[in-house]
């Protein structure tokens, strides 16, 4: 099993604030940041009605399938996708190969504006992910993982 991905509170706060800024600057309905394996990381905007867990998993599956298509076509990863709906449109971008940025928007915005704002946001997010990776690599403090005991694990499965 490979080393787990991590997220720290400071970078989480900064990534959330990039999502909020993108939501505002792109006139988007909602912004979601998802790990490549489908775990939700951050969100901004009108997400109350949305099943974020399901959307995250399906988006990650979609990105993985598109990555598979790009391999067959001997193309590098397709870095962005656009789905045009009747009312809601979806823009999907890879962030530094580590995460997936999803922007949901409607007639209050446009694809051009979303693309423009996404470019800047992904640069900032890529920097923050780099920071997380460095911090995780340098981390020498006790991790939650090595504090876990057999008894903790057994307790989870007590009926």
């Amino acid at each position: 099993m490979s080393a787990p991905e991590v997220m720290f509170p400071e970078e989480q706060r900064q990534i959330s604030s990039v999502c909020q800024r993108l939501h505002r600057d792109a006139n988007a309905k909602a912004v979601l940041l998802i790990g490549r394996d489908g775990q939700p990381i951050a969100e901004a905007g009108e997400v109350g009605e949305i099943d974020v867990t399901s959307l995250s998993s399906l988006t990650a599956g979609n990105v993985a399938a598109t990555g598979g298509i790009s391999k067959i076509l001997r193309e590098k990863d397709f870095t962005s996708q656009f789905h045009e709906g009747e009312k809601t449109h979806v823009h999907i971008t890879l962030v530094a190969g580590r995460a997936i940025l999803v922007v949901l928007f409607d007639e209050r915005s446009s694809l051009g504006l979303v693309r423009l704002r996404v470019r800047k946001a992904t640069e900032e997010m890529a920097r923050l992910f780099e920071q997380v990776a460095k911090k995780a690599a340098a981390s020498t403090g006790p991790s939650i993982l090595n504090e876990i005991t057999d008894a903790d694990i057994d307790k989870l499965f007590n009926d």
Partner: peptide, 8 residues
């Protein structure tokens, strides 16, 4: 890959 979020 497992994902540990120290924030949430």
């Amino acid at each position: 890959m497992s994902f540990i979020n120290y924030s949430s």
